Each structure stands twice: as C-alpha cells, then as structure tokens.
Computed example of a mutant assay.
Amino acid sequence: MGKNREVKEAKVKEIKEKMEKAQSIIFAKYQGLTVEEDTKLRKNLREAGVEYKVYKNTLAKLAAKELGFDEVENVFAGPISTAFGYDDPAAPARVLNDFSKDHKMLELKGGVVQGEIFDIDKVKQLATIPPKDVLIAKLLGSFKAPLSNFVYLINAISEKQKSQED
C-alpha cells in the first residue's frame, strides 16, 4: 500500500472519529471570506467551544458515508468547512448563522445533529435555540418566581397577624 493512501486513510479515520464524537456537525461554504473574516469566525467558534476544520471533500464524504450519512454527500461541492459541536449541539449553527448575517460569503449548507440529517432550514432553526446556560437560567427563573410569590404571601400573612396582635 502506498504512503499517500495510508495518509488518506488515517485522515478519513480522524474525520470519522470527530463526526462520531460530535453532537452536531454543520457544513458551510466559506469561499470568498477574507483572512481577517476567517480569523474572526474561527475565534468566535473557538469561544463557543466549537471545533472548525476544512478537509478535502473526498475524504469528508468518505467519512460521512462510512457513518451512514449518505444524504450529506450533496453538501460537498466547492470549498466546504466543517464545524463540530461537542457540548452544545446548537453552538456551531448559532455561530455560523450569526456570522453569515454580516458576511454574505459564508453560506450554510446543512449538517448532521445527533445522527439526523439537517437541511439549511433546519440548521437555521437550530441556530435560534439559546445557549445551554441561558436555557438553564430561564428554567431556574421559572422555578424562582412561584417560590418568591409564596415567600411574599407568607410574609404578608405574618405581617398582618403581627399588626392585629398590636
């Protein structure tokens, strides 16, 4: 077996492992971004805990096919970048979608979220989901409101009883 083939097989294995590990994989066409824009995008993705890579399309297609994601094969036309979300499945979609609003050269192409193939519309819907910590804060806030009202009620009853005793 040739050295080149071994290198390619190792790269396909690496891509496949990342795809298996990721909760979400979002594909985007990045052609036309300037170096400054690409640097800013990579920084935004890194801050959101998203791994961002550019692979040869043939190798990425092979990895996707081996995992049974045959339907994403049509995504790989032209230069395509791949964003892997490991902790927050919505993070890659959110960052890429937000960035594409100001930088029209970045175009969402689709993705795979928890094993399900997502088209562009589903990726954009996923991008509207707030980050995990915001959702947790909202949940805790919804727990706090009834408890606060209950404490206020108990306090009012106590105050009323004290004023009646005096």
Rank of each mutant, 00 (worst) to 15 (best):
G2K: 11
G2N: 12
G2D: 12
N4H: 12
R5T: 14
E6V: 14
E6W: 07
A10I: 14
K11S: 11
V12M: 06
V12K: 02
E14H: 08
I15E: 00
K16A: 15
E17A: 15
M19G: 05
M19Q: 09
E20A: 14
K21P: 04
Q23G: 14
S24K: 02
I26M: 05
I26D: 00
F27S: 01
F27Y: 11
A28Y: 00
A28W: 02
K29G: 14
K29A: 14
Y30T: 14
Y30D: 08
Y30A: 11
V35F: 07
V35T: 14
E37N: 12
L41A: 06
L41V: 06
R42S: 12
R42K: 15
K43S: 12
K43I: 10
L45P: 02
R46Q: 13
A48D: 02
A48C: 10
V50I: 08
Y52T: 10
K53P: 06
Y55T: 15
Y55L: 11
Y55K: 13
N57E: 05
T58R: 13
T58V: 14
L59W: 02
A60G: 08
A60T: 06
L62M: 09
L62K: 10
A64K: 04
A64D: 03
K65V: 11
K65D: 12
G68Y: 02
F69A: 07
D70P: 03
E71P: 04
V72N: 01
F76P: 02
G78N: 08
I80V: 15
T82F: 00
F84G: 05
F84R: 07
Y86H: 13
D87G: 08
D88G: 05
P89Y: 02
A90C: 10
A91Q: 03
A91S: 05
A93S: 09
A93M: 07
R94M: 05
R94V: 01
V95W: 02
L96E: 01
N97G: 05
D98Q: 15
F99S: 10
F99N: 08
D102R: 05
H103M: 11
H103V: 13
M105Q: 13
L106W: 02
E107I: 13
E107G: 03
E107S: 10
L108T: 06
L108K: 01
G110K: 00
V113L: 09
V113A: 03
Q114H: 05
G115H: 01
E116S: 13
I117L: 05
I117M: 03
I120R: 04
K122Q: 15
K122G: 07
K122D: 09
V123T: 09
K124S: 11
T128Q: 11
T128F: 04
P131W: 00
P131H: 06
P131R: 03
K132E: 07
I136G: 09
A137L: 04
A137K: 09
L140E: 03
L140T: 08
K144G: 06
L147K: 10
L147N: 09
S148Y: 08
S148A: 13
S148H: 07
N149I: 12
V151S: 06
Y152P: 07
L153V: 15
I154D: 01
I154P: 01
N155G: 09
I157R: 13
K160S: 15
Q161L: 13
K162C: 12
S163Y: 06
Q164V: 15
D166F: 05
